[in-house]
């Protein structure tokens, strides 16, 4: 509606119309009148709670951002669905994977069958097998 209408030339209602330094004088008057209050604020003693509050305004968002970044670094596979640890057959045979390690594999899904576990183990690429020594 109003986007296509031209602005009305209301310049004469601006006190600076024909008096370009009007706002400069206005600004100076306000600053002069505010001088006492500004000085009072500068003289206010720093309280412990005030300092903590001012710090917290900066620290809280910073700490939250740092936590997010740290979380991404520490848990790079956070967006992957399968958290089930994979084991190569050799690991199991050599008993390098203990029962405690294997327990989550069996408990990962109530519907998981032995076949699915075997597929999971066999599918694991040789080059990426954990604990496989060259």
């Amino acid at each position: 509606m109003s986007d296509i209408e031209p602005r009305l030339p209301l310049g004469p209602l601006d006190p600076a119309f024909g008096d370009p330094r009007y706002w400069e004088r206005f600004h100076d008057r306000v600053m002069k009148a505010a001088g006492a209050e500004l000085a009072r604020r500068r003289a206010l003693p720093l309280t412990v709670s005030g300092v903590l509050l001012s710090w917290s305004r900066l620290l809280v968002p910073g700490a939250a951002a740092a936590a997010v970044v740290a979380g991404l670094f520490l848990n790079p596979r956070v967006d992957q669905e399968d958290f089930t640890p994979l084991f190569a057959v050799e690991d199991i045979l050599r008993q390098e994977a203990t029962m405690a390690d294997l327990a989550p594999v069996f408990l990962a899904s109530e519907t998981a069958t032995d076949d699915m576990f075997a597929i999971s183990v066999e599918w694991f690429p040789a080059a990426e097998r954990p604990g496989v020594r060259p």
Partner: peptide, 27 residues
Amino acid sequence: RSHLHFARRRLRDLLGSTQEPGSEGSK
């Protein structure tokens, strides 16, 4: 937008089409 539209229309009616108020200094 509505207030702006009606305000402008009213001002144009009142000031008439021949007047160009503040042709200078309007920002």
